[in-house]
Design a binder for these strands. Sequence first.
DNA 1: TTGACTTAGTGTTAATTTAACACTTTATTT
DNA 2: AAATAAAGTGTTAAATTAACACTAAGTCAA
Lengths: 227, 227
Amino acid sequence: MPCVYEYSRPALTVDCVVFGFDGGDLQVLLIRRGLEPFKDRWALPGGFVHLDETLDEAARRELAEETGLREVFLEQLHTFGAVERDPRERVVSVAYFALVKPTAATAATDAAEAEWFPVASIPPLAFDHAEIFAAALARLRGKLRYDPLGFELLPPKFTLSQLQGLYEAVLGTALDKRNFRKKVLGFDLLVPLNEKHRDGAHRPAQLFRFDPAKYRRLKKQGFLFEL
Amino acid sequence: MPCVYEYSRPALTVDCVVFGFDGGDLQVLLIRRGLEPFKDRWALPGGFVHLDETLDEAARRELAEETGLREVFLEQLHTFGAVERDPRERVVSVAYFALVKPTAATAATDAAEAEWFPVASIPPLAFDHAEIFAAALARLRGKLRYDPLGFELLPPKFTLSQLQGLYEAVLGTALDKRNFRKKVLGFDLLVPLNEKHRDGAHRPAQLFRFDPAKYRRLKKQGFLFEL
DNA sequence: TTGACTTAGTGTTAATTTAACACTTTATTT
DNA sequence: AAATAAAGTGTTAAATTAACACTAAGTCAA
């Protein structure tokens, strides 16, 4: 714990790994750097923590400033503190990972130098951002199994096929359709809507929404969402 | 990512939640503060991050300085950045959790103002350390289920009863002896030693050691240690 | 030395969960 | 109206988990 305040200090930043899902691939939002070092390289959105804001607030502010995204799912990931991670001086960065729904996601592409990349083909990144990205992806894959994170990547109304496709894209494995549906419907956390999703020359699909309030209630009672 | 370096900076510290197990209760190591603020309150060991060390190094250094502990299991937990968490000025703290084996643990009690407390009866803590402690305990409980962390809290040679007692103490639930033994032996990660643990007027117990190298090998192949 | 005591150690069975698998339904398009 | 394409639906075998009680091996005291 702090006792004296006389050391010179590292700079403190936040960086965000923003994931999106377009129905096919899991994607990450990157920013092209306009300044040295790593000018013109792709990088994670982020920036300095101000003295009057929490770390979460800093992450949300930077995300809004650099990508236009607001109201996204945001969770702290890990803090990266290698001594030479920034070539100029000591910078410690608190990394976040964010999940955005497709509706919000399109807004991000408006941002001048922001672009979505499929996670399987990320360009070379500035600083240690490749390491941060890898950690975020590993975390997302891990958490998806026992936390209903997936819904943060889908529109508010979605079909079971979309949900399954998301799980398959993130986890990188094929899932059995019948077993998948049995399982997720068994939790009783998906509310069927009076609405169908029409999409091409075939049978339309039932739309559902996720019931987050019910999930929170169940979680307090020790319930675990497991895939 | 950093672009300019002109903001005034938060101070950066590390704090460690050090867990130990005495065969009965899960315990935490606390330090009595000698200085204001929170003078004479109990607090987590920790201190400032120097410019020439990583965060992990800072945590190990502070742990050694304040408690005498070295070579402990150490993992980054979460970074705490509430604006008013230190009453004097803005301080952001990277929290770690540490697991120490009983052999090492006794060394810690030599440290002047360090003391072990059962996690069920922690005194009031300085700063936001109660929150950090709660996060660490939740993380330990969560991770114990799917990561072989428990061995970091036991001596290198241990009996299955000791191992089970540890799991029960941390998770707070009773476990079935036969099922527990079947499960952990089934992983084939415990090596029986040519040695028995004698302890009182009853049958002595087989001693085992954990095989970390084998575990790492299996983990790479997607194996999960699950209780 | 023997009997009482205490913890170590051990298997079987029922219940639950998971994994594998194929056809019918409902819309659109031509 | 026929072709197409994804949606939707149950059963069974296999694997895992949960429940449960006695014997074994040592120490200690009478």
